[in-house]
Amino acid sequence: MTKIDKDTIKEMAFWVRVRIPDDEAAKMAEEFTETLSWIGERLKNPEIQTVPPMVTPFDEQIPLRQDIVTDGHQVQAVLSNAPDATPEFFCVPKMVE
């Protein structure tokens, strides 16, 4: 059985760059552990070993695009919604190595 604790929830929150207060994380951990146990029970169904995973309902071949330049050259449009930008670049807080 998978047990999710508060710290795991907080780590998962960091993966998607959101914060979660300790008490909420603890509550979520408890509920999620319960949910996982319910899901785990349902997934014990031996039938699932007889079929491949279904990733998508789509059944056609992947389309291949011709290698020609059809896009770009639209700096203004690309930057038009940016919260912080120069006429050429998007700006973010200094990224440190």
Binding site: R65, I68, D71, G72, H73, Q74, V75, L79, F89
Partner: peptide
């Protein structure tokens, strides 16, 4: 080596004006 990017139609050429070889997908 290709003319355009792997999943968009923007130019794959090295260099260029900043953010000029950018399709909306690439941003």
């Amino acid at each position: 080596i290709s003319n355009s990017k792997v999943f968009s139609g923007a130019s794959a050429e090295f260099g260029g004006e900043p953010n000029d070889h950018v399709a909306f997908l690439d941003a």
